[in-house]
């Protein structure tokens, strides 16, 4: 299994850029594990965070191919030791059984999550954490009965003075 890497980059915040970026990954056979996009303090710029399984040669190509794109402003591979990485999951669990509800609350608390909504048959919880923690949380709640999951993909910032400068 190839290592999972995280790349953060700034792009022009305009139509078609997400398509061009994902098209480059597809065309060159790089498999995106997750991608998250959002505006930054400058409304004309958006920040993308991609996590991708790749060896170091492939990762190098990904960075160079991204840098080559006209609408990509700045690219950086993130060092996991020097970055904060977070992902959020919304999960809907089958909690008809009161025991299941009990257990769900225990897991959500253990992962510092929130209960957002409770129905007679199900509840929706939110958990934020490192992607591995999210994986763990999901595998622990699986026996309870997962109705639906929505994950945001990784988003990340570097610590201290490190920055994705323009």
């Amino acid at each position: 299994m190839l290592p999972l890497n995280t790349i953060a980059f700034l792009v022009e915040n305009k139509a078609g850029v997400l398509f061009n970026v994902s098209n480059m990954f597809r065309r060159r056979g790089f498999n995106i594990e997750s991608i998250s996009v959002g505006a930054v303090e400058d409304p004309q710029v958006a920040r993308m965070t991609v996590s991708v399984y790749a060896d170091s040669k492939e990762l190098n190509q990904i960075v160079l191919q991204l840098e080559k794109m006209v609408d990509v402003i700045k690219v950086k591979r993130l060092d996991p030791m020097r970055s904060i990485m977070r992902e959020m999951v919304l999960i809907k669990l089958d909690t008809v059984d009161p025991m299941a509800r009990e257990e769900t609350l225990r897991h959500v608390n253990a992962y510092h999550g929130l209960i957002l909504h409770i129905d007679p048959e199900s509840l929706i919880a939110e958990v934020t954490g490192e992607p591995e923690a999210i994986d763990e949380f999901i595998s622990k709640t699986r026996p309870i009965g997962i109705e639906e999951i929505s994950r945001t993909g990784v988003t990340a910032l570097e610590k201290g003075n490190l920055k994705l400068e323009r």
Binding site: V11, E12, V70, V72
Partner: peptide, 10 residues
């Protein structure tokens, strides 16, 4: 008509 053009990413 612009005399020149510049791109942040190019």
């Amino acid at each position: 008509f612009p005399d020149e053009v510049s791109f942040r990413g190019y």
